[in-house]
Structure formats: structure tokens, C-alpha cells
């Protein structure tokens, strides 16, 4: 299953940060919370309700999946990005890159 860019869904800042957190490695819920807080430099502190609401949607859309840790001694669930999710994240990041590029171009034109 590949990511279909034409059916791109809106990604909130919170979801984007969750996807970025999982892009590096599979993480469990609490680790995602802390990572998102770090990524946003403390600006965004997710509640568990918000986090798991987003995780459930991402699971249903197939962007993430459950991941079984090798060390299963701890009673918690880990999540990892799927290929579809990575495609969506790449598309979103590309979009943002393009935007910054266009923005820089426009700003330089107006400055000139």
C-alpha cells in the first residue's frame, strides 16, 4: 500500500509532531509525549486524550501500526510509522519545504 498524495488529508501540527516522533524509531505513548514536548521546545504538551485520539485515527488510516518491542517486560504498547505514514509525512514535509522556498523568494522580491 502506497501513500496517495492526491488524497492527502489535513495534518494538524500535533499530528505532524507525532509522526515526526515516530519517524525516528518506534515509540510508546509516554515516549511520544515527551518527544513531542522536546520537538516543539516545550510549546506543545499533549494530553493523553489528544495523543491517543490522534494515534487511533492514524492507526485506522494505516499511517502507523502497533510494534512489538523485543523487551516486552514493560506493559505498554509501542507504535511505528508504516510506509503509508512515512509517505504522508514526506509529502507534508516536502510541502512545507516548498512553502518556505516560495516564502523566501517572495520576501527577497519584496525587499528588492
Amino acid at each position: 500500500m502506497r501513500y496517495d498524495a492526491t488524497r492527502h488529508k489535513e495534518v494538524s501540527e500535533q499530528v505532524l509532531l507525532i509522526l515526526l516522533s515516530l519517524a525516528e524509531e518506534p515509540r510508546h505513548g509516554y515516549a511520544i509525549l515527551k518527544d513531542v514536548e522536546g520537538l516543539s521546545e516545550g510549546r506543545i504538551r499533549l494530553s493523553t486524550g489528544t495523543l491517543y485520539g490522534a494515534l487511533r485515527r492514524l492507526l485506522e488510516d494505516g499511517w502507523i501500526e502497533f510494534f512489538s518491542e523485543k523487551d516486552a517486560t514493560r506493559d505498554r504498547q509501542a507504535y511505528r510509522l508504516t510506509r503509508v505514514g512515512r509517505g504522508a509525512l514526506d509529502a507534508e514535509v516536502s510541502r512545507m519545504k516548498l512553502l518556505t522556498k516560495v516564502a523566501a523568494l517572495r520576501l527577497s522580491r519584496s525587499a528588492a
Partner: peptide
């Protein structure tokens, strides 16, 4: 479901 159970566990940790 397992997501909700995991949510409660994460809440306890936080």
C-alpha cells in the same frame, strides 16, 4: 480496546 488500555497506562506514567 488495547489503545484505550495503553492510554490509561501512559496516563499513569505521566
Amino acid at each position: 480496546d488495547e489503545v484505550t488500555l495503553d492510554m490509561v497506562a501512559t496516563f499513569e506514567e505521566a
